[in-house]
């Protein structure tokens, strides 16, 4: 019976209470990051697919017209799109699917009753997305470097604001989907979105040669805006404020919608 004594509440203990807020969010961020990295299907989505996209675009002539237009190699044109795809994979699909199943199994409900709370839970998820996108940047950057990519420090720095805004917008979209429909439906919706936005959403393939209002339409999508902003930053060393503004608007709108419609159970 004495084995239980240290387990139980001590009414006199004043120092009982929650761990500091920052530590709670960091702990949740690490926990969610490891959960995603341990999941084989997630790894395929987060690492293998972007890598295949990079190799595919580097060894085929798909991007040659744009490479000629920018006056750079295929890999140089491919890399910003691949990075946009990474943000899409992690923030929308990976995080959305994980959150959908967490919701279905009551994990969101349970963790929100611990000192972590709802706010800490969302911040922890956002942190995990950021950590994974940074890891993806390193892995894809290394693969790209092997194929001759050299963005330079300026290019990398100028890619960060757009990447951050894109991650925010897609995280909000992932939460919105995961928090409103069933887990299986979430799986179907975010994977469909991933394929559509990757293929024709202006992320991997630049949109600025489309006929009519096509360019304008595609670059108003978060995927198109992210792809365009990353290409402007990395290839032209320009911070594309219009595209960043589009991403910021999407992030705010989707964030508000997620806040309004997200159901915890």
């Amino acid at each position: 019976m004495s084995a239980i004594a240290p387990l139980l509440a001590d009414p006199a203990a004043r120092e009982d209470g929650p761990a500091p807020g920052v530590r709670r969010v960091l702990a949740q961020g690490v926990f969610e990051t490891l959960a995603m990295l341990r999941n084989g299907e997630q790894l395929m989505l987060l690492v293998l697919f972007p890598l295949m996209a990079l190799l595919g675009l580097a060894f085929t002539s798909f991007l040659d017209p744009w490479a000629a237009q920018y006056g750079v190699s295929r890999v140089d044109v491919a890399m910003p799109g691949v990075l946009a795809l990474c943000a899409l994979s992690t923030a929308l699909s990976g995080q959305g699917i994980a959150t959908g199943f967490d919701r279905r199994y009551g994990v969101l409900r349970f963790l929100s009753t611990t000192p972590l709370g709802r706010g800490g839970l969302i911040l922890g998820k956002a942190l995990a997305v950021l950590v994974i996108v940074v890891l993806q940047y390193l892995v894809m950057g290394a693969a790209g470097a092997l194929l001759g990519w050299s963005p330079g420090v300026v290019g990398v720095l100028l890619s960060l604001p757009a990447l951050l805004l894109g991650v925010a917008a897609f995280t909000a979209l992932g939460l919105l989907v995961a928090g409103t429909i069933r887990a299986e439906a979430t799986l179907a919706v975010v994977n469909t979105l991933w394929i559509v936005l990757a293929a024709v959403g202006g992320s991997l393939l630049p949109a600025h040669a489309l006929p009519g209002a096509g360019t304008w339409l595609v670059e108003a999508l978060p995927s198109g805006a992210l792809g365009a902003a990353l290409r402007a930053g990395i290839l032209e060393h320009q911070l594309s404020l219009p595209h960043c503004a589009v991403l910021a608007v999407w992030a705010v709108l989707l964030g508000l919608a997620a806040r309004r419609y997200f159901k915890w159970s």
Binding site: L8, A13, R24, A27, P115
Partner: peptide
Amino acid sequence: ASMYRRPAD
């Protein structure tokens, strides 16, 4: 347990 200042063993 990491969410608490003094969790159980």
